[in-house]
Computed example of a mutant assay.
Amino acid sequence: MRRALGPLLVVLALASGMAGAGEAKTILIVAGTEKQIFLPAILAERLGYFRDEGLDVELQSEPSGVRAADVLLAGSAHGVIGSYDHTIDLQAKGKSVQSVVQLAIAPGEVELVASRAADRIRSPADFKGVALGVTGLGSSTSFLTQYLALTHGLRLADLNLVPVGAGAPFTQAMRQGRIDAGMTTEPTASLLLASGDAKVLVDLRTPEGTHKALGGLYPFSCLYMETRWIRKHPEQVQKLVNAFVRTLRFMAGHSAAEIAAQLPPEMLGGNPAIYVQSLAGSKAMFTADGLMPEAGPATVLRALQTVNFAVRNKPVDLRETYTTDFVRAAH
């Protein structure tokens, strides 16, 4: 019986192995699926572009970018849709990760001040002793908040950073008075502005606003992965990048309303009109081709060296924080 079943078992084992290989799930952690800055990930899934590449992608949401990076380094995910500045921060800490496709050239963030506190907080120079909302300690919002304060004459010791997450938790923290100002993304920012609960203090939602506030383009949302995993799985990485490049082309060729029409209702923050309006106003932050802007990494490094002890005291090779090889192949 063993001789008779042997060939059949071999065939079944091979078939099972091939099916498993084709259906292997790729897990990507999104540092907040509700945030417009990470919209290309949701859109790629909704448009079926991952499926077209033969990929089974699972998007998992983690509100804080620093926790998303922790999940990646723990081996529980294959990549993170998060901020490029984590690649620099992690290199300074002895970890090697790379951006494989750049989704945005501006943070897409906005520093808001609660309307009740707008008379006494008129710029980052007034941040001393103020409860400042960030998604998490060590997150990109905390880096940027600290940088804005330091470039306006304050010290890190003057700051009171309060981790409140994003979306609804951020909104509640501001409305309940637990924070007086804070950095958040769209559509949360526009919903707070429309309700009269907040006013804009520093606007990083466009390339122009970012250049004015930070002195240059600040590459932000991207897909980053561990370098050793990239080298071991170049075909899988290429398929992911192909899907994202195709998504960026779709975004560049369609209006904010047409893009929003592809999204599930729960992503629109309960107000589709404001979502479309906010996306139309900040759509220019997304790259049309997925390439890293040439001078962008240096701007990010300069900001991190100002606020991050590890980055300031360790040599960082920017060439090892991103690669354009897969994007160029996609084109």
Rank of each mutant, 00 (worst) to 15 (best):
V10L: 14
A15R: 01
D70R: 13
Q102A: 07
M292C: 00
G108N: 07
L72P: 02
L248P: 15
Q176P: 02
G75N: 02
V10T: 06
E62Q: 13
E58P: 00
A257K: 08
I42E: 11
G136L: 03
A189D: 11
Q102N: 13
V237R: 07
V327A: 05
T26S: 03
T26E: 06
L73D: 07
V300S: 06
L263T: 08
S282N: 13
E320T: 14
L90M: 12
R155S: 11
K25H: 02
G253A: 15
A189C: 04
A131K: 14
V311C: 11
S139F: 08
N271D: 14
R228A: 15
S140M: 01
I37G: 02
V101G: 04
I29V: 14
V71C: 02
V57Q: 01
T321F: 05
E294S: 15
A77F: 03
L263H: 11
L90A: 08
K35R: 11
A260I: 02
K239A: 11
R51C: 00
V101T: 15
L268I: 08
L223M: 02
A21S: 14
S83G: 08
F127L: 06
E111P: 05
P107E: 07
V101W: 10
D126L: 00
I88L: 12
S278A: 15
R178P: 04
D317W: 07
P219I: 04
D325R: 13
Y147I: 03
A117K: 13
G153C: 01
S83K: 05
E111A: 06
V66N: 11
G281M: 11
T185C: 07
S282T: 14
Q277D: 15
P169I: 04
A13E: 04
W229G: 09
E111L: 11
L214E: 09
L12M: 13
A31C: 10
L39S: 04
G216S: 09
R249V: 12
